[in-house]
């Protein structure tokens, strides 16, 4: 198989384990390209890609843009801060306007869960979901799993604890789907008010005690508290959160094994993760960032093949 089963990447839920393996194998090749003196290939030189970001983003947008440029695509950027969205234009109109300019692919971040699905039903371009509200962030999950594979050799059979604000996290949901498809065991850990009530229906373990979660896992993926998506109070204070759910070196020292520490960034240092862990040898946070470019190159390259 050398083609994805879908012409869009809307979510990990919608692709197969074979798709994921294909993306990984393609990313392996691109990672090699990224380490060459000339880090560019001509694969997408006839493709125009619009990065449409209705929500703030620094690293994801940068990573996509870099991936697109490394593939020689033409790139246009659009973000909500200077968009017509605030003038009341609908999503479909905004995107249609951009497509009238003959764009082939759209990479979109949006605050509404399912916004890329809506778009895929209404426009012809390939859609890559760069995060839709509290739903999915598929390329983040792919790069996370790719990074685990790189560090531990394989994802299958590994125990991964996702720690933090699961309720508001698209990273958590995509990671759960991705890791399970690849044969890993997943646990979620956080204050009970930040865990979806029906989370066990996804086949994950649930733990409220972070030390127990760390003892269980091979990999701890620490999530950021999504204050911007919390419209009401879910826990008493950041101080209390960091005391009971923040990961520090002392906690890792208490373990009788070494675990891998991940974070999708940006880190709230001193809240969910202390610097003595974030910058330690346990951490593969910067590898995640590096792998993000290779994974996004792979996704864009493969989707261009199913246009």
């Amino acid at each position: 198989m050398s083609q994805l089963s879908s012409r869009h990447l809307l979510g990990i839920k919608d692709i197969t384990a074979e798709d994921i393996q294909l993306i990984f194998e393609t990313a392996d090749n691109f990672k090699e390209v990224l380490n060459r003196p000339i880090k560019k290939v001509p694969s997408l030189r006839d493709i125009t890609i619009a990065n449409i970001f209705f929500e703030n983003s620094t690293r994801t947008k940068l990573s996509f843009e870099l991936a697109e440029k490394r593939l020689s695509a033409d790139v246009v950027n659009f973000s909500s801060s200077n968009s017509s969205v605030k003038k009341g234009e609908t999503l479909i109109d905004t995107v249609n306007n951009i497509l009238s300019m003959k764009v082939d692919m759209v990479v979109m971040r949006h605050s509404s869960p399912g916004a890329p699905h809506f778009l895929s039903r209404n426009i012809k371009a390939n859609i890559v979901n760069a995060g839709d509200g509290t739903h999915e962030h598929p390329t983040q999950a792919l790069l996370d799993a790719f990074s685990i594979r790189e560090k531990l050799g394989d994802v299958a059979g590994k125990k991964v604890a996702i720690i933090g604000d699961i309720l508001h996290s698209r990273v958590a949901l995509s990671n759960i789907f991705c890791l399970q498809k690849l044969g890993a065991e997943v646990m979620v850990c956080g204050p009970i008010t930040l865990l979806p009530k029906h989370i066990t229906s996804l086949g994950v373990k649930v733990e409220y005690d972070i030390q127990k979660a760390l003892e269980w896992c091979d990999v701890a993926n620490i999530l950021r508290i999504q204050l911007e998506r919390q419209q009401i109070k879910y826990f008493p204070s950041l101080r209390e959160y960091s005391l009971f759910y923040g990961v520090n070196k002392k906690m890792l020292d208490r373990l009788d094994k070494e675990i891998v520490i991940m974070h999708p960034g940006p880190i709230n240092r001193g809240v969910e993760l202390n610097s003595d862990v974030a910058d330690s040898e346990h951490s593969i946070i910067l590898n995640q960032v590096e792998n993000g470019v290779a994974i996004r190159m792979a996704v864009l390259y493969l989707l261009a093949g199913v246009r």
Binding site: G114, G133, H135, L173, K197, H198, I199, S201, L202
Partner: peptide, 21 residues
């Protein structure tokens, strides 16, 4: 039911949508 968009259950969990319990 604050900010709820659909029934809170397995499906709302899968699609990341705020639920109405």
């Amino acid at each position: 039911a604050l900010f709820g968009q659909m029934h809170e259950g397995n499906i709302s969990t899968r699609i990341g949508m705020k639920g109405i319990p």
